[in-house]
């Protein structure tokens, strides 16, 4: 039976309005709620549905980074993943290093399908899945909104700028999840209890043979430029005059 690997990144919760810290060295994370990156949660939901439909034998969730990410892995286990792997490092990680880490696990675990979110809502990079597919020399189906498994291939519907594109890819493959792929399930209390007994392996990044060598460096964080305050109009006539005044009509 196929094994599916799902990446879960610990990220600032979707509902938090993020602010740059006073030193310009990062964003405020003190006391800020952390969650699974929403796109990764969708990725996991899809993997669980494939398993429930009999297309996969095991769903493994993995996170790379600080030890605190085990909270998000426990949530993933409570959603229904079979086991979790936490790859720990204190080094800054680029999507390329994460992709190398995932590749090491793909090889170790003989993974046939990797599903990750199309992007994380912190770095907004939108790279990791594509990079993994490149390093693995396997197909990628990014921005997936529908996925159908057919023996050793996948039909994936992708949300692209022009509309919906359908790709047919051989397995093993990498899929990146878009928002409309599914709606992730809610975790129930008994599942949270059960998840505590599921295996969570911790392994250091260096023990996987991956070096967090430096590449592109972030040197400064700044708040965005804010737009200047606008005017409120009372009615449609006021709106038409305001547009006319701006030379837009």
């Amino acid at each position: 039976m196929k094994k599916i690997l799902v990446g879960l990144k610990r990220a600032v919760d979707y509902n938090i309005r993020v602010r740059v810290n006073s030193g310009g060295t990062g964003v405020e994370t003190d006391g800020v709620k952390m969650s699974i990156n929403p796109f990764d949660e969708i990725a996991l939901e899809e993997a669980l549905r494939l398993k429930e439909a009999g297309h996969a034998g095991e769903v493994i969730v993995v996170s790379v980074g600080a030890p605190e990410a085990q909270q998000q892995l426990r949530t993933g286990l409570a959603m229904g993943a079979d086991r979790a792997i936490l790859v720990t490092t204190s080094d800054p990680l680029s999507p390329r290093i994460v992709a190398k880490t995932l590749l090491a696990l793909v090889n170790r675990e003989s993974i046939e399908l990797v599903i990750v979110g199309k992007q994380t809502i912190d770095g907004d990079n939108n790279q990791t899945g594509q990079m993994l597919a490149a390093l693995w020399d396997r197909p990628q189906a990014t921005f997936a909104s529908k996925l159908e498994i057919d023996g050793d291939s996948l039909q994936v519907t992708r949300e692209v700028d022009a509309g919906l594109e359908v790709l047919d890819v051989d397995l093993p493959a990498v899929v990146t999840a878009d928002l409309r792929l599914n709606e992730p399930r809610y975790v129930k209390l008994p599942d949270i209890m059960k998840a505590k007994k599921k295996p969570l392996e911790e392994i250091a990044l260096s023990d996987l043979g991956v070096a967090a060598e430096a590449g592109v460096k972030t040197t400064k964080y700044a708040p965005p430029q804010s737009r200047s305050k606008g005017v409120m109009v009372d009615d449609v006539d006021g709106l038409v005059s305001a547009l006319t005044d701006k030379g837009l009509l």
């Binding site: 680029s94 993994l132 597919a133 490149a134 921005f143 992708r158």
Partner: peptide, 23 residues
């Protein structure tokens, strides 16, 4: 940084073994 470029460029960067700068 369209769906075309977002799909392609990270694959290029990984094959070159360099980080990619998005957006």
């Amino acid at each position: 940084s369209t769906t075309f470029g977002k799909d392609l460029m990270p694959r290029v960067a990984a094959l070159l073994d360099v980080d990619q700068i998005s957006d």
